[in-house]
Design a protein around this nucleic acid. Structure first.
Lengths: 211, 211
DNA sequence: GAGCGTAATGACAGTCACTGACAATTGACA
DNA sequence: TGTCAATTGTCAGTGACTGTCATTACGCTC
């Protein structure tokens, strides 16, 4: 199953991801050319485009994996849990696994820095949002499946996932703008934000910060 | 104030928007080149890029205006309204004005078709999502202002706007996939989806469609 | 209404992301 | 070891976008 060919490909792909991350983090996304990435790994530009359909993809490779990781975790959640609770609980439990999965490809620190690059680079942020949308659709299907509610006739699965994802994105964004970015702070911020979903929707906001 | 120079520029810009819309709608976004758009209006490609920083911008010009329109409407809402109610009410009231504003630039029908093109064209959808994010941030500031809650210390403004915007985007998306796309159906679908925000978050989803 | 300053445009060359085609290389497997 | 198929490099081409400079056109003054 793991012939030399496979392993070589895997190594090239990983090397491209790591090299790209290092270049993006140090000199910025827009100012890094595909040629530079390819050269760093000593392959031709054409080969780069055989591994990644475009420049964005190599930048979002790890993030996509993280989101896929979250989706998988949601799918393994025990049935019968109320949908919002299911998402919230998964979110809280999945961080360690995410950390491990990331480390298999790039140093965790590099990935966290890359998250900030994504947030601050318009074209990259745009692509990231679109990728997230695809994952949202998968989540919708899963929520619909586990609640027995048809996503095509009842808007609630979509509405729930949209609200939840919107809040998570916001949390990620706010976290990315902080100084100390670690998995721990990310977990805290997202947990915090999601917890505010209910209070934020009800009109009676007190005058002081959440009690 | 409106010298010949200004009016001429305005006319060129509008002509570019209309020509671009027609081309995008008939042959698709990716298959339309900037040269074609410029040629249709009889200006050089360079001039096109003096009016719009990139190809996406001309495609999203009207949509951006619509979102700005919504934002303005939120700002003129009477103070004291609970924030979610404020957004919901504005959303319901603003449609006619939006229709009028759009018609000043492109035929409404063309715009509605363009919305579908945006939803179905990955790169364009990505750009659209990013633009929406900018508008969300403005909304956050406005909500924070009118509730006297600091957006930098209390997550609720961001959480509320994120949830609301997420649901609106979902509604727009679902609407765009329908057959009969009119302002009326758009109003209905969005109103419908936003109304489901509360029910979707509570765990006790009934087995049948919303009663 | 002639002339001057400035804004708008066109023409051109160049960069970079991305693609198709074809030839060269290399692992897999008989 | 030889053959097949997958992987890669090279090259040429397209299209989005940018900087530069010469040209045109507007607006304003005298």
């Amino acid at each position: 199953m793991t012939g030399l060919r496979e392993r070589k490909k895997q190594r090239t792909r990983d090397a491209l991801v790591v090299a790209a991350h290092e270049l993006f983090v140090t000199q910025g996304y827009d100012t890094t050319t595909v040629d530079q990435i390819a050269e760093a790994v000593d392959v031709s530009q054409r080969t780069f485009f055989r591994y990644f359909t475009n420049k964005e993809e190599v930048a979002l490779f790890v993030q996509d994996m993280v989101e896929a990781c979250f989706y998988e975790a949601v799918c393994t959640e025990p049935p019968g849990t109320p949908p919002l609770e299911c998402l919230r609980r998964t979110l809280n439990d999945v961080w360690d696994e995410v950390g491990r999965a990331v480390e298999e490809i790039v140093p965790l620190d590099l990935h966290l820095k890359m998250c900030q690059v994504v947030e601050t680079t318009p074209s990259l942020l745009a692509a990231h949002l679109r990728h997230s949308l695809l994952m949202e659709e998968k989540l919708v299907q899963e929520i619909a499946r586990r609640t027995g509610v048809g996503a095509e006739v009842d808007p609630r699965p979509r509405v729930l996932v949209a609200a939840f994802s919107g809040v998570m994105r916001t949390a990620a964004r706010q976290w990315g703008m902080r100084e100390g970015t670690s998995l721990e702070t990310a977990r805290e911020v997202t947990r915090d934000y999601v917890a505010q979903l209910g209070p934020a929707l009800t009109g009676d906001w007190g005058r002081e910060r959440r009690p």
